[in-house]
């Protein structure tokens, strides 16, 4: 077996606070190949953004305690020097952020900010870097790029700003692209444009993409693999289609059944996940999801509230991992969950 392009192993990001240690990410592992996309789903505070920032080394020189291993092309990003990490940022690993307005400096032109990203890693003149920025703006579909390159971020629309951010991220041809909620701040039609653009560019650049989002719909369209995070840990991980069609973890079920749908049966019910996300300072004992789980009575004894389940292969395949004590999740899903969220599918069968 060859080593994967990106391999994250037992990544922990802990923040010491006066009240105790906040375990924002607590033992995250996944792998990713070039040209593939992994979707990391989770709600605010699930640790999805913290983990990706750690890959970029953004927690260096903060009070965060980062441990584990992040192997990018065989190099452990947690062990290399600050200067080596700096050389990788923007060149090998690039990032797109959620809100393109606040992610761009309001006082500099869009073009100069894109060109800056190029000049950091290439010893070229300002003029050449600007020409390259125009080229990238054109590539991401900004009309009249040679004029718009001198505009300031506030003169761009939301969608164009995100395009410009993508241009900035891809200008050095990175092999790993981290997209942190890239479309959350955008309107649906613009979101569709940006998602298509990202897929398009990924094909051209053969980059590995980490797509962080709370929107399962975006994941369904973009991701090859899906990793569901809850309270700093992976609770379900596997091939995207598999996870979305045969989820085995009650939290994933909850995510699927609490989101309304634009198509299908209008009699489908909206079943919220009760309660609130747990505190990362004092997570509940046992499975972190147990206080909100409506299926824990199906597990014998008090396993759910005392023992943290391991991330182990589920009932359907070796590569579909889940963190849950339930013995027969597939049956529960087929019989209890599916009829609620996709009644028309059940009827067809």
């Amino acid at each position: 077996m060859t080593t994967p392009f990106l391999s994250v192993r037992d990544l922990k990001v802990h923040f010491p606070t006066p009240d105790g240690i906040v375990k924002a990410t607590d033992g995250l592992s996944f792998t990713l190949e070039k040209g593939k996309t992994i979707g990391i789903v989770g709600e605010s505070g699930s640790g999805k953004s913290v983990s990706s920032s750690a890959i970029l080394g953004l927690h260096r020189h903060t009070n965060a305690i980062v441990s584990g291993e992040i192997l990018l092309d065989g190099v452990d990003l947690l062990k290399i020097s600050d200067e080596d990490m700096r050389r990788k940022r923007g060149a090998d690993v690039a990032m797109i952020f959620q809100d393109p307005l606040s992610a761009m400096h309001p006082y500099y032109t869009v073009g100069s900010q894109i060109a800056e990203a190029y000049r950091v890693h290439h010893d070229v003149s300002r003029k050449k870097a600007k020409a390259r920025a125009v080229e990238m703006l054109d590539r991401v579909g900004i009309p009249q790029p040679d004029h718009r390159v001198d505009d300031y971020p506030h003169q761009f629309s939301g969608g164009m700003r995100q395009r410009a951010m993508i241009a900035m991220a891809l200008i050095n041809n990175p092999s790993l692209l981290i997209a942190d909620e890239p479309t959350t701040a955008l309107d649906v039609t613009v979101q569709a444009q940006i998602l298509d653009l990202l897929q398009d560019l990924q094909r051209d650049f053969d980059a590995a993409v980490i797509m962080i989002t709370h929107d399962l719909g975006v994941i369904a369209e973009m991701a090859d693999d899906v990793l569901v995070m809850y309270a700093g840990r992976a609770v379900e991980y596997g091939a995207g289609k598999e996870i979305l069609t045969h989820p085995e973890m009650p939290y994933t079920w909850g995510l699927l059944s609490s989101v309304p749908d634009v198509a299908g049966d209008t009699s489908a019910k909206l079943i919220p996940i009760p309660g609130n996300p747990p505190s990362l300072l004092t997570p509940p004992p046992g499975c972190a999801f147990n206080p909100r789980c409506t299926h824990k009575d199906k597990v014998p004894g008090d396993l759910c509230t005392t023992v943290l389940p391991d991330l182990v292969p589920g009932v359907r395949s070796e590569t579909h991992l889940k963190r849950c004590h339930l013995a027969n999740p597939d049956a529960i899903y087929e019989q209890e969950i599916l009829p609620e969220i996709l009644p028309e599918l059940v009827e067809e069968r």
Partner: peptide
Amino acid sequence: QALLSAVPNVKQAAIGGRRERIQLEGDV
């Protein structure tokens, strides 16, 4: 029609892949 086609839909995707999107060009 364009608006509806642009909404990513997990359940749809879960059953049978994604629908064809109608791309709107440009901005409002």
